[in-house]
Nucleic acid binder design. Sequence first.
DNA 1: TTATCATTGTGTTATGAAGACACAATGATA
DNA 2: TATCATTGTGTCTTCATAACACAATGATAA
Lengths: 256, 256
Amino acid sequence: MGFKEEITDHFLNGHQKYLRNISVDCIIFGFHENELKVLLLNAKYAGQWALPGGFIEKEEHMDEAAKRILKQRTGLDDIFLQQFHVFSTPDRSTKKINTQFLKTSGVSMEGSWMFDRFISVGYWALVDFTKVKPVADVFSDACEWFNIHTIPELILDHNDILQKALENLRAQLNYHPIGYNLLPEKFTMPELQKLYETILDRTLDRRNFQRKIFGTGILKKLEETKKGVAHKAPYYHKFDLRKYQKALKGGMGFEL
Amino acid sequence: MGFKEEITDHFLNGHQKYLRNISVDCIIFGFHENELKVLLLNAKYAGQWALPGGFIEKEEHMDEAAKRILKQRTGLDDIFLQQFHVFSTPDRSTKKINTQFLKTSGVSMEGSWMFDRFISVGYWALVDFTKVKPVADVFSDACEWFNIHTIPELILDHNDILQKALENLRAQLNYHPIGYNLLPEKFTMPELQKLYETILDRTLDRRNFQRKIFGTGILKKLEETKKGVAHKAPYYHKFDLRKYQKALKGGMGFEL
DNA sequence: TTATCATTGTGTTATGAAGACACAATGATA
DNA sequence: TATCATTGTGTCTTCATAACACAATGATAA
């Protein structure tokens, strides 16, 4: 099936495969070079960036739909994800930009389920940046990481969704294994601290941070030090997942 | 329009008025006689109790839909409500019980949008028990308060939804004006403490509780004492909403 | 009229967590 | 070999929380 046929089929018959009026949007967080990043798609139809998203199959759990979408964009299974909010303003419709997209694709069409209003469920996901291979979808030209502080204007209400996702991530910081999912297996203490500082958007005292983290017992210090760095080489650490999970049960107490 | 016609119209044409595949369920919390209570409907179609719920109109914000549903059940405007989770297991369909309901109502029908799978968005609401006049809907015989500790078996996954609502209410306790919305304008300190104890499901020290609450400055002590009680009469208090809102910004710090 | 008693109202102390802060150790680079 | 940015660690102070006891109140019972 060629591109044009694929598009046409999706617009004409997609509603037989997917639930109507409801979609999923994903905020995929990664951490790289001491910066919090988000994976965005460049939407052909709008010439604008957008959050990766998709629809829920008729017999599919919504969480599974989110997982499927994430797998398609990142190549990863077993992604940590969290439903966080539903976005439902009545004007959430891509009719205008979809019509434009179809026109430029040389497809003409009267009505389509894709022109309807969509209520969207937001999920945020935490991934190991180094393991992701970004893949664009059929509606997009590009799939790239953006620093959380330099996000361009996105389609529809996607900037709002992203903002809300970030707020929710902050609020959930003490109750989910954020570090475990965002960092590679081995990492240094300064890296972990920088992760917390970036998400909380404030600085933390190095000594108090270390004392608190070690106090929870969630870290194992390795003998190995980081190589190829100027100045004193920091030790690598890894998570003791068992103790991490346990500590999270009661909340870990990093205040906003 | 008679009952039978109303039902038939809803099943045949409701999808022209409402979004498909998506519904709203509400957990309406009230506090009375030192007990946390929830408003439930007795579903004619199942002979079982259920959460009040409804659908979203084509051009309606989902929050508005929830407000409309709440107004219909309680008679109240300006209800404090909070979206908390989306429930999306693929087997969320009332086809079976709806078919049974139609049969006993003497209506026969082949297909209907109401037989489809529904993804449901959960909202919890806080109301002043004394102001609510429970009203059943067209599918129900009764609308009554239940003590949170003696909830019967509900239809579908409504027990799970209720459980999750309660968990979320607990987690949000320090960030929303729970007391302000659940208690009448004037209330005593022991009543407020009991509210917190009920929601948190644990006892609190009377002296520490009072010190902490007064420390936030959210209460104004009135000169009036409660009448007609045995033993020492407690003073009434009311909230200083301005300071309450302010205090909530940073969280109020009642730990679970 | 007086005593009883459950309940409200309040103050002190002890404990532990969090915040502020300084200096020695390391190891690549100059 | 000296420099220097960065890592690694300990102490003191401050504040919030938890534990705890006794006096005041006022309806009820004797």
